[in-house]
Design a binder for these strands. Structure first.
Length: 471
RNA sequence: GCCCCCAUCGUUCAGUGGCCUAGGACACCUGCCUUUCACGCAGGCAACACGGGUUCGAAUCCCGUUGGGGGUGCCA
């Protein structure tokens, strides 16, 4: 893989399951690495001991693997605390940082009293605070000038240094904050492209300032990484997808019967489209071949589950039927009508495959074959069976006659079709709908005669008679 | 409040000064196919937020307005 100097990284914090936004960031990094033959680094940013949950790292691995996203190197920031601390100490030694014993309440109170700009006011800059309880380390930001960078998606972004507060780089617990870890690792790991969500843009000046400080006066010509801040993925209210109110867990989508290829392909259409303007649903290799960070949109994109569903349905239909059967297995065990016999499903699979949007919907097409007919709504029942004397009488005739003929015909789909349609010709009416309703309790579904042949003769006749009685 | 970003059909991507009476896809609507549904096919609806510039010419460049969003932690 690593035959080009490009190095990208995906840096999740293990504070929750992988969500679609994170997956999209990982995916775009991966796409770029694939395209350029670069190296993909997975860097777990677990510097917040209170919120990080190590057991989630495995889940992140699994979700990424599910999506087919691979990585070449992996690091855990908690393994590298000593290095970050050393960097912070070096800042202290060089007077680029200082200790501060202001409580968060103090900082807030002074900010409110001043009515001026937000954040920390530099109170401890020259107080020469010594190490101790409740003491943090703050980075001394420049009071004037501008920190700017060129975003490959957004163009030049500038920040007035005067608006940057002296931010905390080491907690009172002695554990460094993510800015330091981030700046240190990107430098140390030789990251060339930082591709991540737009919500991180305003951490750039801080990270850049830290990086310059780490580089020292002699190495200032070391170029910063190329930044690419991906547009946010938003909900229908145009807000950033949130774990609390939106469906964002990649694992949940997997559990609901989405195919990873479909999810991956769909995610790629959010903020990006193939350069050649061709189909958006296509093999990942074709998409990789024309992927470029510079082509990514800057505007937020709505996560449209309907469109995702369409992608998923397309991908399901495109599967060879054997593969569809294999992939659907996990969804056959725990259904509303109990486990579905794999052999039966195998025989019906081709009919089901073309009709589902989610793998998990598959079983519902066979509910009446495995269990009892559904309870139809009155509206559906009337619509099919008739809402006039005349129509009801006809339906009764159909049901009677079909039940009669079924008593001693061959029990094959072809024979059943011949009986049902034969009655229709005799009575000069359509017969499939009423038979379907009698047997399945639904107006629509997979073709009728094949599943019908799976049922026992007496069951079919029983259902026809029961429906007749209900007319 | 302050900082930063964004602005083409309902949605998404295209369009980088003339090829735009703005194109594709999803969604929606209509028909065709089919003794169900789905698929497929044909067609339809539907957008350059607003106001100023720049220019022979602006969806495309600049400024402003409005609207939306993100950030503003000893979270990442």
């Amino acid at each position: 893989m690593a035959d080009s100097p490009i190095r990208v990284r995906f840096s999740p914090a293990p504070t929750g399951y992988l969500h679609v936004g994170g997956a999209r960031s990982a995916l775009f990094n991966w796409m770029y690495a694939q395209r350029t033959g670069g190296t993909m680094v997975l860097r777990v940013e677990d510097t917040d001991a209170d919120r990080s949950r190590p057991e989630l790292i495995k889940a992140i691995h699994d979700n990424l693997a599910w999506l087919g996203i691979t990585w070449d190197e992996e690091y855990l920031q908690s393994d590298r605390f000593d290095q970050y601390r050393a960097a912070a100490q070096d800042f202290l030694d060089r007077d680029l940082a200082y200790r501060c014993d202001c409580s968060q309440d103090d900082v807030k109170a002074r900010f409110e009293a001043s009515g001026e700009q937000g954040g920390y006011d530099g109170h401890c800059r020259d107080r020469n605070v010594q190490p101790g309880e409740g003491v943090v380390v703050r980075f001394r930001t420049p009071d004037s000038g501008v920190t700017a960078y060129d975003d490959i998606i957004r163009g030049r972004v500038e920040f007035d240094n005067a608006t940057l507060e002296d931010f905390v780089i080491v907690r009172s617990s002695g554990v460094p904050l993510f800015h330091v870890a981030n700046a240190y690792d990107d430098l140390d790991m030789g990251i060339t492209h930082v591709v991540r969500g737009e919500d991180l843009v305003n951490t750039v000046p801080r990270v850049l300032l830290l990086r310059q400080a780490m580089l020292g006066p002699d190495r200032q010509d070391t170029p910063p990484p190329v930044f690419a801040h991906l547009p946010l993925i938003v909900n229908e209210k145009r807000q950033k997808l949130s774990k609390r109110r939106d469906d964002v867990s990649v694992g949940d989508y997997a559990a609901r019967g989405y195919l990873p290829e479909a999810m991956r392909n769909y995610l790629l259409t959010l903020g990006w489209g193939p350069r050649d303007g061709g189909e958006e649903i296509r093999p990942i290799e074709e998409l990789v071949a024309q992927f470029d960070l510079a082509d990514i949109n800057a505007a937020p994109a709505f996560f449209d589950v309907k469109k995702l569903d369409h992608f998923n349905a397309e991908y399901i239909r495109a599967l060879p039927v054997e593969e569809y059967i294999e992939r659907v297995q996990p969804f056959l065990e725990d259904t509303d009508v109990g486990p579905i016999d794999p052999d039966l499903f195998g025989r019906m699979a081709a009919f089901v495959q073309g009709r589902v949007r989610l793998l998990s919907e598959s079983a519902s097409f066979l509910d009446w074959v495995v269990g009892e007919p559904r309870e139809p709504s009155e509206k559906d029942w009337n619509k099919v069976m008739g809402n006039s004397e005349e129509k009801l009488a006809m339906t009764g005739n159909v049901l009677d006659r079909v039940a009669e003929r079924l008593a001693d015909c061959d029990w094959t789909p072809e024979a059943l079709e011949a009986v049902v349609f034969g009655v229709g010709e005799e009575l000069e009416t359509k017969t499939q709908m009423s038979v379907r309703m009698a047997l399945s309790g639904a107006r629509s579904g997979i073709p009728l005669f094949e599943p019908m042949a799976e049922l026992d003769r007496h069951v079919v006749i029983g259902r026809l008679r029961a429906a007749r009685a209900k007319l």
